[in-house]
Design a binder for these strands. Structure first.
Lengths: 340, 340
DNA sequence: GTCTGAAACGCAAACGTTTGCATGAAAAAA
DNA sequence: TTTTTTCATGCAAACGTTTGCGTTTCAGAC
């Protein structure tokens, strides 16, 4: 079935004038007479004229579209960020094309290429787990494609990024546990090579330091937190051998595993064992006990990233301005850590 | 910063031939000599030529882009559907533009208009809660824009739709409870005006009928299931007055509320009170007890909807073929209903 | 020598819009 | 009346690509 649209030419034909006059009339150009303008507007209304964005994009070499590459859409945090992106984009007249890398660099490279070929005005990226090499992004940036990274950002590339203040988050979590009166606090950390792992750990240390406590290195377990079962096992082992009385887990799933381990071990959460997670996944408010966690401002992150990108797109200047934003985290104190 | 791209003209200039020859050479046209083809391919490679999709879209009046309108992205089910859409779209060479209605008709109308103006080849829609009038969609369809609805579909419009078999789901949930030995099963239903509410309720009745049981109408509560607290109150009240020994909730949040109410009331879940939810939200596997629920195949729904749409887009025929798909649900038996 | 035919390529229009410049008519000034 | 000015509109090119049709060139047939 053919798409039925009315173009400027149709209006022109209808009125017996030229397309250029119609174009100008619609833009309220001063050189067009009131009469003609009125007639054009009337016919445009009648035929329900809608400008063809494709033609405009070609003409101006600007598509008013921004591309997004996320590891996966089905993820509370990422979908929240996307929602924030969509919010700003919408308000500034941009469309949003979503692609997912599924944590694969190969797919990521395909995506950025496709987006480029589709002439998006800029791209927002959160890296896949496999991405340690950033040359595919660099190449695009050299061709003049504005890119802003968020959450999972490249360490070396000189580019705009928006992240969460993981150090602060780690600090808030730990500080909270200390204030609640827990003494031997363990940490289920992420993989050692990730920036966020180290930042959260640093926050963990800083909170101890600020409270005049020393960190027992044996209570820090790396890379056993990628899912609930793994965390359960690690926490159980830790309970048996090192006798912690609280645990700061680097994500909420791990926190859940830790709680179950503690309960299995015979501890009462939170009375004799406190747990704090990270990310504020939806389920944390629903479990029993509900889980204390660190809220990451995903929506705001999307908004800021989109704003930064659009600013860059619409900037007249030759050299791009590089800005880095670190958004503050927020402690959500729930039942899993309320000793009193 | 100007975007730096190479066009067919650049290649033509470089070789001193005409753009048309370059175009044909790149498409391996038979009227172009081997020599020229080779030269063109070499230069195209050198200059890293990438065809301008915008120009192609304009030329062919086809953008290879499909639009999506969902109530909200930050929702496990919808993001799963989107993921399925993206999967098919990607494999068939389409881009996906995402918009959200935020449950507002006004926004929905804006979105469909924007998508149309951006010349998407077709649109996938899940209705907002406010959408009882479908004229804005009808208008677009009359203009030749293919639309396929999914999940929340219009009852009257003659169009392709993909839904979940809610009747089957309600039946599976209820049947399961009956088989587990529960006798007085209540139902926290959705709003009365929704199709899904009635379908699930019908399944609830059918299961009773099949088992030779009669439904106690007093055990059916409408529209008290939109969040956890509401469901908690409704379930508690029901427990006090009507003494059910099990509850089929029309969504997982409500199931959670019902579990908490039952526990508060002194019941042991699942020993003396069984609960089944609907949707298989992520948290249902993590709670204590884990929640038995009905799995809705969101990813497959996205895939099917996208396939239907693309088929319609690429169909040569004048009149669109209307297809309705009902996807089977699946019972996930967990702890909240395992009496034995 | 002219003619035919095939091979290889170029011209120009088209998709829908914008915009610098030219053109036309009418009104005002000479 | 002629010239200048003003006002309103049209022409054509451009964005990048494709494609029907025409043109050029050259080899071979007559």
């Amino acid at each position: 079935m053919k798409r039925q649209t009315t173009t400027i030419k149709d209006i022109a034909r209808e009125l017996g004038i030229s397309p250029s006059t119609v174009s100008r009339a619609l833009k309220d150009h001063f050189e067009i007479s009131e009469e003609t303008k009125k007639a054009v507007r009337r016919v445009a209304e009648e035929l329900n004229y809608q400008p063809n964005s494709l033609a405009l994009s070609l003409r101006y070499s600007k598509s008013n579209t921004i591309g997004v590459i996320v590891p996966e859409i089905v993820h509370f945090f990422f979908s929240t960020v996307i929602s924030g992106i969509e919010d700003i984009a919408q308000s500034k007249g941009y469309n949003v094309i979503i692609t997912q890398s599924n944590e694969s660099v190969a797919r990521e490279m395909m995506n950025i290429q496709t987006l480029f070929n589709n002439r998006v005005d800029g791209v927002l990226v959160s890296l896949s787990k496999e991405s340690f090499d950033y040359t595919h992004f660099e190449a695009m940036m050299q061709k003049g494609l504005p890119i802003v990274f968020f959450d999972r950002v490249p360490d070396t590339l000189n580019t705009s990024k928006v992240t969460v203040d993981d150090l602060l988050g780690g600090q808030q979590a730990t500080e909270h546990l200390i204030k609640q009166g827990y003494k031997r606090i363990g940490h289920l950390a992420g993989p050692k090579n990730l920036d966020i792992t180290n930042a959260r750990l640093e926050g963990f240390r800083k909170a101890h330091e600020d409270a005049g406590l020393t960190v027992d290195e044996d209570l820090i377990i790396y890379d056993q937190a990628s899912n609930e079962g793994e965390a359960y096992a690690a926490a159980f082992e830790l309970l048996k051998t090192k006798k912690p009385d609280a645990l700061f887990a680097s994500n909420d799933l791990a926190a859940m595993g830790a709680i179950k381990a503690a309960q299995k071990y015979g501890k009462n959460v939170p009375q004799d064992f406190g747990v704090v997670g990270f990310s504020n996944w939806q389920f944390t408010a629903l479990t029993n006990p509900s889980i204390t966690t660190i809220e990451q401002p995903g929506f705001e992150m999307g908004q800021h990233a989109a704003e930064l990108l659009i600013k860059q797109i619409e900037s007249e200047e030759e050299e791009v301005s590089v800005e880095s934003l670190k958004l503050p985290t927020n402690l959500l104190a729930r039942d899993s850590s309320k000793k009193v």
